[in-house]
């Protein structure tokens, strides 16, 4: 039986990239679900013009929140596999198959893209040599997560995986949270190499695009979540 693949694209002020991203992703999946996280630009209108499903947050809630909204919608609409794909156009859509196939074959429940498994990404030096090792350390200490790419947003989840947990971190701490919950829920997972083309630096220690991003905020959110969850 054919698996129904949904691609969830969280978007915040991405009018420059959203149309292009939808155009390249749309032919590769059954349904694209853009979650516009209360953008102030034309993201919503441009995405809607591409003929895909566009959900709109009336208040900006962050990337993690947008992904869970997309997950909820996809599950409701009968998705078998959910792919998370950033709206900034830094991921390669032709690698969606690499993430989806292990789930289609029934071998794994979750597949994480990794920028550190052979394929060469033009990652900024500061990010590769300084921020990522710290992020790996934080994941290992706080969450007992030991995965090569601590902050990869490109991933695929089986329906079973997406239903087994909810993303509670509204901001960018969702990456670590998803890895942690994958391990905690004993879901079968693997990492596959991906390529990322950097158009901008992305998250730094102190700031990043969108609500509750930036390295220190992520650490703070992970710590807070420990007292709430």
């Amino acid at each position: 039986m054919e698996k129904k693949i949904f691609c969830v694209v969280p978007a915040f002020n991405e009018e420059k990239n959203i149309s292009r991203v939808i155009k390249i992703v749309k032919p590769l999946v059954d349904q694209v679900v853009v979650v516009d996280d209360c953008s102030r630009d034309k993201t919503y209108a441009l995405a809607a013009a591409e003929g895909v499903v566009v959900l709109r947050h009336i208040i900006n809630r962050g990337q993690g929140a947008a992904l869970q909204t997309g997950n909820d919608y996809a599950i409701k609409m009968g998705a078998d596999i959910i792919v998370h794909f950033d709206a900034d156009g830094q991921f390669s859509a032709d690698e969606i198959g690499d993430l989806v196939n292990p789930i289609v074959n029934g071998e794994f429940d979750v597949v994480f893209g990794s920028r550190f498994l052979g394929k060469k990404s033009d990652m900024p030096w500061m990010k590769e040599k300084f921020i990522m090792p710290i992020a790996r350390l934080v994941n290992a200490i706080l969450l007992d997560v030991r995965i090569t790419d601590p902050q990869a947003g490109f991933r695929a989840l089986s329906r079973k995986a997406a239903m087994s947990f909810r993303i509670m971190n509204d901001g960018h701490a969702h990456c670590s949270e998803i890895m942690h919950k994958t391990i905690k829920n004993r879901l079968k997972f693997r990492e596959v190499p991906i390529t990322v083309t950097y158009h901008h630096f992305g998250q730094t220690v102190f700031s990043g695009k969108g609500r509750r991003s930036g390295g220190l905020t992520i650490i703070k959110d992970l710590l807070l979540a420990k007292f709430i969850d």
Binding site: V53, I58, I59, T69, D170, L224, I228
Partner: peptide
């Protein structure tokens, strides 16, 4: 207070999410 604020934030997110899906 910070923990309580965080819980309220999560509740707001749930409401925003419900609205987004219900509207669609």
């Amino acid at each position: 207070i910070r923990l309580r604020q965080e819980k309220i934030e999560r509740d707001i997110t749930e409401v925003v999410r419900e609205l987004a899906i219900a509207k669609k």
